[in-house]
Write a protein that binds this DNA or RNA. Structure first.
Lengths: 127, 127
DNA sequence: CACACTGTTTTAGTTCACCCATACAGTGAC
DNA sequence: GTCACTGTATGGGTGAACTAAAACAGTGTG
């Protein structure tokens, strides 16, 4: 589930790990109540220090995504499940609208954004 | 022109200074060909080290906003259209990256965003 | 030339985010 | 209790970003 962690990426390891968990939850690979890999197990798999995984988990806990239970494990919370399917699509639309608004303020049009989006994600965009 | 610099702000001093110049240019307070305050003069006014002002000016020069002439001063450039395009493209990329980061926090991937973008702008996107 | 301005370069100190290592503490099965 | 797991807490090493200081170099005037 957490194969591709890139130590040379400019984004910190703990953020990459947290992002993986968020994606897994959003994609339904992890449901509310499910246990995440233990700190040590995941650290071993990713060849990373346990404290780094802890930092990722702590961030997720601060956001209300998961709950850390001393001696038991880290578990996905209910709240995370509302971000699914239509809800996700709607949230995506909202984010895109914010992007377009902010861009318009700078005189940047949709075409320019499309190019940037394509450059960043590799997606092919046509007008 | 550069009164309000806040040393306690989390945004670096040199970025604050550079931002002031951009605003001044955008607002027309500084026209093409105008000289910026000298490194030392501005540093004295802002009670900041000259090297800090240099870094701000260097950033602006790298963006094509100004030109630093050894022994003469720093001058606002004619904003050639291709430079504006470059600046716009760079800002667009920055905005898209923020979008992707924010989306990732919610477990929303690039694909979902591409769909939303297409729905909102009518642009055709292919993977 | 000297002089007073301009930007340039180099070096260094401070701070902070990131990551790691290690010891500490709770939980549950046996 | 003991054991094997779980998360917790503390301190340290590393490197990058930021700011500063000082010495170096170009320009134009008299």
């Amino acid at each position: 589930m957490f194969e591709s962690i890139d130590p040379r990426s400019p984004t910190p390891l703990y953020e990459q790990i947290a992002a993986r968990v968020r994606v897994a939850v959003a994609a339904g690979d992890l449901a509310a109540g499910d246990a995440l890999p233990s700190v040590r197990a995941l650290a071993r798999d990713l060849r990373v220090n346990p404290a780094t995984v802890v930092q990722a988990y702590r961030d997720l806990a601060a956001d209300g995504f998961v709950e850390m239970r001393h001696g038991q494990g880290t578990f996905v919370l209910e709240v995370a499940s509302y971000l699914r399917d239509e809800e996700r699509a709607s949230r995506a639309l909202e984010l895109v609208r914010e992007l377009l608004t902010e861009a318009a303020r700078l005189g940047i049009g949709a075409e320019e954004l499309a190019r940037a989006f394509q450059a960043e994600t590799g997606a092919e965009i046509r007008e």
